[in-house]
C-alpha cells in the first residue's frame, strides 16, 4: 500500500509541476529571419561597401584659377552632408560614409581643354578619368607633391572614393571616383537638384547604373538614378531593385 501512496505522491507532484510549468504557459518560437548582411558593391557581394571614406576635392585646371569659387568648400561640404544622410537612409544605416575635404583647391597640371578633351558628352567622363589619375598621383600617393598624411591615407576597411568638384563641365562617375561641375552646386538654376546630381554620381562609385537611356536620356526608373535625379535629394530614393543588388 505504501508503494501506491508513494506512486500517488509522485503523480501529484508531476501534475503540479505540469500545471506550474506547462498548462497555459506560452511557448515562444524562434523566428529565423535576419536582415541581409552588410551592403556590397552593386551585384558584387564580395566587395563590401559597409564603410566608405570619401576624399573630396575642388579641382581647378591651371588655366581656370581665376574662376575659382569662393564658396566651393561650403557647397561641397553641404552636398556631402546631404549625401551622408541620404545614404544612411537608403542603406538603412548599414553603410557608414565619412568624408574629408582637401582644404585647398587642387590646381591641375593641365589646362581645362586637356581634361575635357573635345568631347564632353555623357557627363564628361574623360575629364573625370584624367582628374582621378592626377589626384591619385599627386595627392593620394605618398610621393605626390600634394600628399598629406592625415588626409591622403585611408584606414582599412574603409573603401576610398574620390568626389571631385570640377571647375569645368559635366557630371559622371566611375567605380572609385565621381565628379560634378561646380556649377551644379553654386548656380541657382540647380539649387533644387545640385545635391541630387552630386549624390547620383556618388552611387556610380558603388556600381549603380543610370536609370535612363543613353544617349536619349529618357528615364527608365523613378529613383535617383533616373527621373528622381531631377528632384531634391530629400525627396528622392534608390529603387528597390538597385537596393537588392546592393545587398539591402
Amino acid at each position: 500500500m505504501v508503494k501506491y501512496l508513494i506512486g500517488v505522491l509522485f503523480l501529484i507532484i508531476g501534475a503540479l509541476a505540469w500545471m506550474y510549468f506547462g498548462v497555459g504557459k506560452p511557448k515562444v518560437y524562434q523566428e529565423s529571419f535576419q536582415l541581409a548582411p552588410s551592403p556590397h558593391f552593386y551585384g558584387r557581394p564580395d566587395l563590401s561597401v559597409s564603410k566608405i571614406a570619401i576624399k573630396a576635392f575642388y579641382f581647378v585646371p591651371k588655366n581656370r584659377t581665376k574662376r575659382t569659387s569662393s564658396e566651393w568648400y561650403q557647397v561641397l561640404e553641404k552636398s556631402l552632408k546631404k549625401l551622408v544622410n541620404f545614404n544612411s537612409l537608403q542603406l538603412q544605416g548599414r553603410s557608414e560614409v565619412v568624408y574629408k575635404i582637401y582644404p585647398v583647391p587642387i590646381v591641375g597640371e593641365k589646362e581645362g581643354i586637356d581634361y575635357d578633351t573635345e568631347n564632353t558628352q555623357y557627363g564628361n567622363p574623360q575629364a573625370l578619368l584624367a582628374m582621378n589619375r592626377e589626384i591619385k598621383r599627386r595627392v593620394l600617393d605618398s610621393a605626390g607633391d600634394l600628399y598629406d598624411l592625415d588626409f591622403s591615407e585611408t584606414e582599412a576597411p574603409y573603401r576610398r572614393v574620390a568626389m571631385i568638384l570640377y571647375e569645368g563641365v559635366g557630371a559622371s562617375g566611375t567605380d572609385d571616383a565621381a565628379m560634378v561641375s561646380r556649377i551644379f552646386l553654386t548656380d541657382p538654376e540647380y539649387s533644387l537638384t545640385g545635391a541630387t546630381i552630386f549624390t547620383h554620381e556618388f552611387y556610380h562609385t558603388l556600381g549603380l547604373p543610370d536609370g535612363y537611356t543613353i544617349p536619349e536620356a529618357v528615364p527608365t526608373t523613378e529613383d535617383i538614378m533616373g527621373l528622381g535625379k531631377q528632384r531634391p535629394v530629400e525627396k528622392t530614393y534608390i529603387q528597390r531593385e538597385f537596393l537588392r543588388k546592393l545587398g539591402i
Binding site: 538654376e189 539649387s191 533644387l192 537638384t193 529618357v218 528615364p219 527608365t220 527621373l227 531634391p232
Partner: peptide, 14 residues
C-alpha cells in the same frame, strides 16, 4: 513642393 523651376522630362519609358 517647395521647389523652383524644374526640368520637364520624357517619361514615356516609365
Amino acid at each position: 513642393r517647395g521647389g523652383g523651376e524644374v526640368e520637364l522630362q520624357n517619361v514615356s519609358q516609365l
